[in-house]
Design a protein around this nucleic acid. Sequence first.
DNA 1: TTGAAAGCGCTAACAA
DNA 2: TTGTTAGCGCTTTCAA
Lengths: 353, 353
Amino acid sequence: VPGNNPPSVPKLSDVARLAGVGNTTVSRVLNGGINVSPEKLRRIQSAIEQLGYRPNRIARSLKGAASGMIGMIVPSLSDTFFSGCAEAVQMVAREHGSLLVVTASHDDADLELESLQQLLLHRIDGLVLSSARARNPRLDQELAGLTIPVVGLDRPLQNANLPSVMSQNAQGAKQATEHLLQHGYARVLCLHLKPELAPISERLRGYSKAMRDAGREPLLELVNSPADVAACLVRQLSTGRHPLAVFTANNLTARYTWEAVRNLQLAIPRHVAMLSFDDFDFADSLTPPMSVIQQPVDGLGRSAAELLFESMRLPGAIGEQGQRGSVRLPTRLIVRESCGCGPANHQAINSTY
Amino acid sequence: VPGNNPPSVPKLSDVARLAGVGNTTVSRVLNGGINVSPEKLRRIQSAIEQLGYRPNRIARSLKGAASGMIGMIVPSLSDTFFSGCAEAVQMVAREHGSLLVVTASHDDADLELESLQQLLLHRIDGLVLSSARARNPRLDQELAGLTIPVVGLDRPLQNANLPSVMSQNAQGAKQATEHLLQHGYARVLCLHLKPELAPISERLRGYSKAMRDAGREPLLELVNSPADVAACLVRQLSTGRHPLAVFTANNLTARYTWEAVRNLQLAIPRHVAMLSFDDFDFADSLTPPMSVIQQPVDGLGRSAAELLFESMRLPGAIGEQGQRGSVRLPTRLIVRESCGCGPANHQAINSTY
DNA sequence: TTGAAAGCGCTAACAA
DNA sequence: TTGTTAGCGCTTTCAA
């Protein structure tokens, strides 16, 4: 209609007026259309169509309904693992008509808490949380008072008795170690950093288990630089006579090791065999291609989000389930060449053997 | 106070009651504290403190004020470039007391539009947009009607006449090419994919410019797999007599090339020298370490977000500025060894020469 | 400098 | 099956 100045964004009452019904009836149609005569239903739907009406989520959530937003707090967004998870979480959120609000805690407990409160103020309907710290009483306290569901991702939330979704870190590491052992490497080193993080400590446990099962002492080394790794390798190579292999507990240690090996002019797998936890972009393009334990990144994100929406659907369910609702997803051993396998043997082996 | 059942989350009126003032006065304190007597100001602040009161953002934005959320639409969240940008944007948002809502468009124009509308419904205060497509009339139309500021990131928004923040793609590529040319490689190939994307096409332009300036014909090749690259390399190596170098226009082509070179048992830089646009985690750990043009990922995200908040502060400014408000950030040439430079020469050269 | 009152767009008792 | 009414928590005229 020309001359009609402020059409801007249509509101519920505009739809009601056009359809010749009350606001409530329109609201009913919006929320499932129960108890509405077919006649009015049709008229209202057509009015909605005609006006291009979309309900204002803000107003809706002020009234107490769901805000249509879920939150996600991760240590870092630029970390490929977490950004991969975030992508999956966002997709699931979209499937449920929700938006994803993310914040990075940068492993800072205060920032994490601050983010949480900020998200709460915005009335998020649920939260996926990769907590910065294993133990954080203030966070646990805050979480305890929450009325919205929370799901842990990659890091457990056991103190708050909340469910979480994680990889089978121990099994994955065990499988990696066993694979190296089977190659005949009598000495399998485990290089790691940040052992205080739950996923890492679980991997160390899986590694140690495999070593002990094979009648060997675990050889755990904390490394924070390529130099640390180099020192460690030199020590091992000058000492023992057994063939040497290295299991690196994450991406970063793998990179440190790769550099150390290059600097020492060592050959993989001839001088040192190698197998790493966590796949990465260039793993397959290296010389030799690196064998890895691959985490189901997308699956972790998806599962966490789905678990979250599940508990949002069933109010109270999360409180009852608690930790018991947790999920463990299997890892995969991706055999390439750094472990000693030949080029012909490229294959993926599922860790749930 | 024991026995007091539902304290839950304190609201503005609770603060007012405790401070013994009216709601309006509390609201004034919240919004800058102008026109409030020092006495009441103090009382109110103390009441806020005491109750741990934080204003409900939802209610606030329903009334028309800012929602305290900005949106970001990127092609992919798992792409390290975009997740790096997202991290920076989120940090700036936090500095401004805002939350970041991200969605991934997966290069799907419909999804992108859908996301935009969804974000609008949630009353975001501004938007950082890495548009999936260069030309999208429907999106442009939607953007034209927007009252909130929008800033493009990595992709221009020229059709909508909106500012954007991008790398100096052409200059970076030109510098890369010149560097290879200076090494004496008479043939410098440019391997690329998705030339329809603005950043890529700009790089191709920069490369071509450098070639022509050096009196050589550009050698552009579209490659979609390591096999494509291999075919291309074989052709070049069997044909010409001049030393060969390759400039890869992005991460993925670099990986394809790396694999092709390995499969062909070629040596870098002896048989083929190499320089790539975009740095990546393992670039420095490869053998030889790969020389790259590095984008200021963090800077791009930061600048886009800062430009956005700037225009949110100055309403209307973005409409007036339009395209002219755009920003170009310099890239850096990271000299490692794949380009033919010796190990001693590791250094970074700024592209704004 | 202050507060009462009127909404923002929607939902949910309640009554019809 | 419907519409009227009263808010959700905040901001904002407006009059005091």
